[in-house]
Design a protein around this nucleic acid. Structure first.
Length: 191
DNA sequence: ATGACGATGCACT
DNA sequence: GTGCATCGTCATG
């Protein structure tokens, strides 16, 4: 298992979003291979960094390689990795395949159905116990652990989910055919 | 001080 | 497939 270097994150968000598919993400030892991400690049109207710094998004204006965690719909947490670009881009971690710490995840999620443990950004944060307390933490140090993918992944590509701005931009990436996605991709595969 | 608006998830038809 | 709870954050007055 090769830990990811900080340079991995210091690229544009689309590149990082693609490269993260298949990477194993553990938080305090709980997690598994990432199967779904979304890119939010600079000059992207849907990105939280687009309208300049605020108290919430301050970490997105710091160095790459840190976690940006925020609350959505007053109820759920979302985990992002801060990337390169100016203003910064970010990648939303949307889903992963639960392999490590299944018992802890099932307990936190209130279900033992593996399909439902991490198949969405809010679910993933609940299963991995990611909260606002993780906002601004370095990604190359505990409790986070990113481990390089073992092999090349076949990528599925599609439009991002839940947006009203730039809703057609195809910056959602996934492991083709995975059953742990938050939703199926509209159509087939691509490189 | 107040109002609009979500990078969602879940219950229900 | 559709409806909506729920509340922090930000923009505005």
């Amino acid at each position: 298992m090769t830990p990811l270097q900080v340079d991995f994150f210091a690229r544009d968000a689309v590149t990082v979003a693609k490269a993260l598919i298949g990477v194993r993400l553990l938080v305090d030892g709980v997690g598994g291979p990432i199967v779904e991400t979304e890119a939010y690049d600079r000059d992207d109207p849907a990105s939280h960094s687009f309208n300049g710094p605020t108290k919430r998004n301050a970490v997105m204006f710091g160095p790459p390689g840190f976690a940006y965690v925020y609350r959505i719909y007053g109820a759920h947490w979302c985990l992002n990795v801060v990337c390169g670009g100016d203003p910064r881009g970010a990648v939303l971690i949307r889903a992963l395949e639960p392999t490590d710490g299944l018992h802890a995840m099932a307990e936190r999620r209130g279900t033992s159905e593996e399909r439902l443990l991490c198949s969405g950004p809010g679910k993933l944060c609940q299963a991995l116990a990611v909260t606002g307390a993780h906002d601004g933490l370095a990604l190359d140090a505990p409790p986070f652990a990113f481990q390089a993918a073992d092999s090349e992944q076949a990528l599925a590509i599609g439009p991002r989910i839940g947006l009203t701005k730039a809703a057609d931009t195809p910056w959602r990436f996934g492991a083709a055919g995975s059953r742990f996605l938050s939703k199926p991709f509209p159509k087939g595969v691509a490189a």
